[in-house]
Simulated assay, not measured.
Amino acid sequence: MYPPPPSYPGYPPPPMPLRPVRGVAIFAVVALVCDSLIGVVAAVIDLWYASSRVPSPPRGLFNAWWAAWLIGIWMTNLGSRLLFNADELESLAAAARFDVVSVGLMLIAAVLAIGVIRKITEAQEEHRSAAVIGMPLGAPGGMAPGAPGGGYPGY
């Protein structure tokens, strides 16, 4: 059965058009960018704190991975803008150079991400093996930071 025409009695009126609000679009873009860039590193650090008996993550590896990833994303964005605005051979060559550098940075970030994942996996394996051995609750090194009976307060 087909829907009734809009002039049919009892048919709901059409929705009101949306009013453009200046700040909503800017807020949505900023929220998405912050969530996708900062949320990733916050999740990795939270995973480290939940997995490890050591109170602080290896900051050098985490910071190098995050910096390479952010700079790689920025270089990719800049290279694509240069490519779309390129008119001549020189500007195409400059865009290609930015693209090559950004791919290199993303490869470096991928290798560093593998290192971060291995560190977290090692911490989880140490935590699991300590639990299998049967370290008592509250013993130094027996629980993850923030766990009930652990040596560190939760955050």
Rank of each mutant, 00 (worst) to 15 (best):
V41M: 11
E90K: 13
L70Y: 02
G79C: 03
W48R: 06
A86H: 02
L37I: 07
V100G: 10
V41W: 06
I38E: 01
G60Q: 07
L70K: 03
E88G: 15
I71H: 00
V40G: 03
G60C: 10
G23V: 05
F98Q: 09
V30Q: 06
W74N: 11
V103L: 11
M75G: 07
F62Y: 15
R97D: 13
P55Q: 04
D35Q: 09
G39Y: 03
W48Q: 03
N85E: 13
P57G: 00
R59E: 13
G72K: 03
Y49G: 04
S91I: 02
A67K: 04
N85D: 13
W48H: 08
A64M: 11
W65M: 11
R81S: 11
N63A: 13
D35W: 14
S51L: 04
V44I: 09
E88K: 12
G23S: 14
L78Q: 14
A50F: 11
G39V: 02
W65P: 00
R97K: 11
F84H: 06
V100T: 14
L32E: 07
A67I: 14
S102V: 03
G39E: 04
A42T: 08
S80K: 08
S51H: 02
A67L: 15
R53Q: 15
V100D: 08
V30D: 01
A42Q: 06
A42R: 05
V41G: 03
A67P: 00
L89F: 05
S52T: 06
D46C: 09
G23A: 09
G60F: 09
I26H: 00
W74F: 15
S56F: 12
S52C: 10
D87E: 12
V24F: 11
V54E: 12
A31I: 09
S51V: 04
